[in-house]
Structure formats: C-alpha cells, structure tokens
Computed example of a mutant assay.
Amino acid sequence: MTAIVIEDGRLLLLNQDTDEERSWSLPGGKLEEGESLGEALIREVREETGVDVEVGRLLYLCDNVKAHVVHITFEARRTGGTIGNIAEGADTRPIRGVKFVDLGELSALGFSDLFVKLCREGFPGAGSYMGPKSAIGL
C-alpha cells in the first residue's frame, strides 16, 4: 500500500531503487502480521520518511497482474515527525532521500501527466478500482 501526502502543492516522495524506471516513489509497503491497513500505512510512512501521518480517504486500487500485486493507495495528512528521519534497515532497498516535491516538478522525475493531473484535482473518483497502475499514470 502507498500514501499520497500532498501539502501546499507538494507531494511527499522518497528516492530509492524501484521496479519502475524512475527512482522517486510514494512511501508505503506491506502489512506485517496482525496489522490493519491503516496501522501499516502509518508505520511504513514513518519508517521510510520520518513523517507521522493520519490516514484519510481510500484513493484507488490498482493491480499488477504479472507480479500478483494489488496496490492500495490512501490519502494521508502529515501530523508531525521530521522529514528524513528514516528508520535504518526498515526497508530492503536503501532510501537515498525524502522530500516534498512541487507537483509541477513530478513530470521531470518520471511521473506521468495523468498522475500529476489526478494529484492536482484531488483524485476524482476516489475509492475506485482503477485497473492496472497505468490507468493512473504509474
């Protein structure tokens, strides 16, 4: 699962190796035994970015059929923490950086125009199954 944290027209991202061509991605991860989706998202965002969040709306569900993965993405609001205070060893892929990126700069980091548009518009159709990740421009 992943989090969309938009603050003052900027999106919270982390820089690490991904399965995609771009190196900047949304914070998130997998459930641990006994966790709810909300608990896992709060933990993952804190571990990967140092930011404490409150979980908001379900934004979308997407799938990656080849990898047998369902992507669940929630809106989240920052409630505290320190950007970049990353939990060492919490992620299997080293995190090189964490920052809020202006929505206008996302295309230069490899995010599609469709994804930027959805961020700007507040994800119309929130809570929907969107099909493959490409349907939201990821």
Rank of each mutant, 00 (worst) to 15 (best):
N15E: 12
G110N: 07
A90C: 10
G127D: 09
L11G: 02
R46N: 05
I86H: 01
V53G: 01
V101Y: 06
E75P: 02
S25G: 11
G28K: 00
R96S: 10
G84R: 08
G125F: 09
T18C: 07
E21W: 09
P94K: 14
E20Y: 14
V98L: 03
R10S: 10
E48M: 03
Y60E: 02
G125N: 15
N85Y: 11
V65M: 15
H71T: 00
T2E: 08
G104K: 09
I42Y: 00
A108N: 11
S128K: 08
A135Q: 07
M130F: 13
G38Q: 05
T82N: 08
Y129C: 06
V101L: 07
G127E: 10
V53L: 06
R22P: 02
G110C: 10
G56Y: 01
G81P: 03
G80I: 07
R46A: 11
P132Y: 13
Q16C: 13
P124Y: 05
I95V: 08
A40W: 08
P27F: 03
L59E: 00
P124T: 14
E88P: 09
A135V: 07
T92W: 11
G104H: 12
E20Q: 12
S36R: 09
K30N: 08
G34D: 11
V70Y: 14
R46H: 11
L58Y: 12
L13E: 01
S128E: 15
D113T: 15
I42D: 00
D102P: 12
A87T: 08
G104L: 09
I95P: 00
R43C: 06
K133H: 15
L118P: 07
E105T: 02
I95H: 00
R57D: 05
T49K: 01
R78N: 07
S112Y: 05
F123E: 01
E47I: 02
V69H: 11
G9W: 03
D52P: 00
E32L: 15
A76I: 03
G38A: 02
P132E: 15
E7W: 03
D91P: 05
D52L: 14
G80W: 05
E35D: 09
A76Y: 02
R120E: 10
K133I: 12
L61D: 01
A108I: 04
D63V: 09
I42R: 11
R10L: 02
G80Q: 06
E33M: 13
T2S: 15
T73P: 00
P124M: 08
M1R: 01
D19P: 13
G9A: 04
L13F: 05
T73E: 01
A40T: 03
G122N: 07
